[in-house]
Simulated scan of single mutants.
Amino acid sequence: MSENANVQKIVPFEGSKLSKKEQIATMFDDIAYRYDFLNHFMSLGIDIIWRKKALRYLKAIQPKLMLDVATGTGDFAIMAEKHLHPEKIVGIDISEGMLAHGREKIDKLGLSDKITLQSGDSETISFPDQTFDAITVAFGVRNFEHLEKGLSEMYRVLKPGGRLVILEFSNPTVFPIKQLYNSYFRYVTPLIGKWIAKSQAAYSYLPESVKAFPQGEAMRTILTNTRFQAVTCKTLTFGICSIYCATR
């Protein structure tokens, strides 16, 4: 079984008759109201540093039109607007609950003319070929039901010379970080999710999805096979997170 096939088998609700995509949408709808807080709380705020580092990969190309896939509540899109100042950012996500919270944040920040959040599926992106200068995905690709299909769609809507930046969790390999990380993810994270977000299933799914996701050279190979060029991988914080950068 390929690594990607293994990823497809990891779902939030074992025994559910819903597809992985439907389960992901339901899970994020359920935790949307506490998602931002839990992200920062469980990572001790390091996720903010990771996002800033990922956006640096786009500074050289100065994108005017950006797409943020699996945008959630729009955190990455908001940060991209602040640091890169594109003319327009479109964020897409399959969770209406997450999008609703994101739109509220964007309205309060007065960024509705710069950032638009809309319902959208990574596997069927509703934009013409070669539309965007840059595409970002923060902590979302491991939730794709069909990884290669989602990557191919992003390739399709990216302009020639455009850049894709993916920020995703990965599994550290260095002792004792690996052991501490695995224990935290396996035992502490689900309890925090149950306590704060009232969803143990969502935060039990998180470590399983990270464990199953193709990382490092395996992910670089998948991106290359999807026709992306100049594919790089940079690990952060002892390998807890990785930035993948690729060009069309």
Score class of each variant (00 low, 15 high):
E3W: 12
N4L: 15
A5V: 07
G15H: 11
G15P: 09
K17M: 06
S19E: 04
T26R: 14
M27V: 06
Y33E: 13
R34A: 12
H40E: 11
I48G: 05
A54Q: 06
A54R: 08
A54E: 05
L55C: 01
L55G: 01
L55F: 00
L58S: 05
K59H: 04
I61H: 03
Q62W: 02
P63T: 00
M66R: 05
D68C: 03
I78E: 08
E87C: 04
G97I: 08
L99A: 09
H101F: 09
E104Q: 15
G110M: 09
L111S: 05
I115W: 05
L117Q: 11
Q118Y: 02
S119A: 11
D121V: 14
I125M: 11
S126F: 05
P128E: 12
P128Y: 03
T136G: 05
R142S: 05
E145S: 14
M154H: 10
Y155F: 07
V157S: 10
P160K: 12
G161P: 01
G162E: 00
R163H: 02
V165R: 14
L167H: 08
F169C: 10
T173H: 09
Q179T: 12
Y181K: 01
Y181F: 08
Y181I: 03
F185Y: 12
T189F: 09
L191I: 06
I192W: 01
G193N: 07
I196M: 10
K198T: 00
Q200N: 06
E208A: 15
K211D: 09
A212K: 08
P214H: 10
Q215T: 01
A218T: 11
L223P: 02
T226A: 10
Q229I: 07
Q229D: 07
V231C: 07
V231S: 09
K234E: 15
F238E: 07
I240M: 14
S242Q: 15
Y244T: 11
